[in-house]
Amino acid sequence: MSFRARHLLGIDHLKPDEITSLLDLAEDYVALNRRTVKHSDALEGLTQINMFFENSTRTQASFELAGKRLGADVMNMAVSQSSVKKGETLIDTALTLNAMQPDLLVVRHPHSGAVNLLAEKVNCAVINAGDGRHEHPTQALLDALTIRRAKGRLHRLTVAICGDIAHSRVARSNLILLGKMENRIRLIGPATLMPSGVAEMGVELYEDMREGLKGADVVMMLRLQRERMDGGFIPSEREYFHRWGLDAEKLALAAPDAIVMHPGPMNRGVEIDGTIADDINRSVIQDQVEMGVAVRMAALDLLARNLRAERGRAATGEV
C-alpha cells in the first residue's frame, strides 16, 4: 500500500499512486457497503471526532457512517453553535480537543487554510472536510471513484466543470486531482464566477457553455450559492439557467455517453434541469453519494494505518 500521508488536508499533496491506492481500497468498501452486514473492525478502539465549523448535513452524515461502519467511536461536534460563539480561538479549540486523545479528526471550516492550521496543533490524523474556498479532498476522491467506475478509467477524459468555480472548493480539489491523473479540464461559467489566474493552471476556459460542453465525457455541475444569485455576480436565476443551466439541449453537445455529476445539494432549475438530474442513464449523482461513504472509509482506514505505524515506531524508539 503506497498511501504515505499523515493527514488528508488536500489533493495537492497526494501523488497519483496514492490516489490510485486509495480508490482501490474504496472499491473494497463499496462491496462491503452493499452487503447486509456492513461492518469492519479497521478502526476498532479508535476515536473519530467530526468537527464542523460550518453547517453540513450530507458530508457529516457520510463521515459519521464511514467511521461507524469501520468500528470507530464517533463523536460529532457542531462547533458553530458552541465554544466559538463564546470567543474561543480555533487553536484553543484544537488544543482542548487534542487533550481528549482523538485518533482521527474530521474538520470543516469556513476559512481557507484553517484545517492546515489545526493539523499543526494536534497529535492525530486530520481529514479536511472542506476549508473555505480551498480544498475538499474527499469530494474530489469520491468524484474520481464515480468517474472511474462509470467510464472505466480516470485518465485521458475531457471533463467540463461548470458553474461557480470562484467560490468552489469542490472545483479546486477536482481540478488538481483530474489534472494529476492527466485529464483535459474545461472550466465553464460566467467570468464573474471564474477565479483570476486560472487560465495559467493548464485548463481551458469557456464562458459559452455550448462551446465548453462539446465532446465532454464528464459534465460536473457545481452548486450556485443562494447569496450569489441576485445581482451581485449574476443578474438572476432565470438568466443563469438560460446561459449556464444544464438542460437536455446543452447536454446533447457533450459526448453521447457523457455522465452528469453534481456534488449536491442541487438547485433544480438554476444550475441543472430536474429531468437531467433524474435521468438514470446520464446522472451519476446518487452514485456520488454512495461512493462518498466508501471513499471516506478508505481515507479513514489508510490514515489510521499510518497513524498506528507511526505510533508503533515511536514506541519502539525508531525514527
Binding site: G231, P235, S236, E239, H242, R243
Partner: peptide, 15 residues
C-alpha cells in the same frame, strides 16, 4: 446597468 438604477444588482445583461 443595475436594477432600478440603484447600483446594487446588475440587470439581466444577457437577456
Amino acid at each position: 446597468l443595475t436594477k432600478s438604477r440603484e447600483g446594487r444588482e446588475m440587470v439581466e445583461i444577457g437577456f
